[in-house]
Design a protein around this nucleic acid. Sequence first.
DNA 1: AGTCCACAGGAAGGGCAGGCGA
DNA 2: TCGCCTGCCCTTCCTGTGGACT
Length: 397
Amino acid sequence: MQKSLKELFKTYIESKTPIFKDRSVLSHDYIPDITLHRDEQINQLASILAPALKGEKVSNIFIYGSTGTGKTLITRYVTSELQEMGGVRVIYVNCKMKRVSDTEYRLLAELIRAFGHEIPATGLPTEEVYKTFYACLKRERKYIILVLDEIDALVKKIGDEMLYNFVRLGQDLPDVRIALIGISNDVGFIESLDPRVRSSLSEEEIIFPPYNAGQLQDILKQRAEKAFIPGVIQEGVLAKCAALAAQEHGDARRAIDLLRIAGELAEREGSTKITLQHLDRAEDKLDLDRYTELVRTLPKQSKAVLAAIIRLEERGREIQTGDVFSYYERICKANGLKVLTNRRVSDLLAELDMQGLITTHLVSKGRYGRSREIRIRISKPILERIKAILKANFTSL
DNA sequence: AGTCCACAGGAAGGGCAGGCGA
DNA sequence: TCGCCTGCCCTTCCTGTGGACT
């Protein structure tokens, strides 16, 4: 065993068929020198933010567009350039970071940390944390640009009261100069806000439309030139890669992921070229990895609910909440797991829906009540892998 | 027109773990 | 150590609801 591992590492090192020149170019946090097809948004954002350089009032900005349309990339690019000009301090927070910034307390703690202060992860009254935060703001001499990425996730979780506090910062604390940038995937998000917050947050709005296949191909070409050794990409791979991602709402992130994984597959095989075949397999692998990782990290109770759904689906009948609950109960009892209430399971179902593992929709069967009809949203081959994971967790499946 | 099913999903609050200062 | 605070997971209790049945 040990010997074969060593051999594996050795062949990897000695491999004479390098594919990558610089892998990091294809990572999520890479910011290219030149960003393509987003000139309009860059100019828009830059001209809104520019007054900050003179210490003049900057409007709050709301940015939206679906995933992989460059919202985060462009915002980080423009704000970091702005920061380099001096007189401006940019604080970037991703509100979706689990256990880091997904609650009021944690987000505040994260912001305070950005100012170079430490605060305990829990224990203090929120009021105290706000006070520390205000103190940090007041001490700051620079103009503060606060970027809240995936702001919709935050509001969905804790409501918009906190946002209300934020938008009022500039008004209530006269010696604090601050502007907010909210970034969201969800176009309808802004409508769901309290009108006072809405009008204040969206003083300026910037829309990021999806990339089309041609634009995606330009982006891929730009990245590929830096990431790969010249000539390793087979003709047509970039075009297909772009086309695949264009189908997925013009998601550039997905396009780049596909290309990276195709490259890794080729490398692992010792192939000299990235072929269309590699790309096809990359597509499968991307989905497989995403779902298996998701299921593996699911809490035990959610796994039990999912296992119940999969088992019921095998029987080929329509699945409703009630069926899921009874089967879930059986699984729990057989595995010595605590049985949660109907109400809680209903929430777990909603979570599984959000994560894209299942789809649910409300149906009314008149006399026979109202219920959610549940279907599995995962393709066959991936489902097989997920079943294997669940089988390892529950004895009686 | 009224009833009633089988839930959905909101609100409130309990219990726990982690952490604070006194 | 104690009292107090938080987030998180969960329960209990509740009101709401679309449409088949009476």
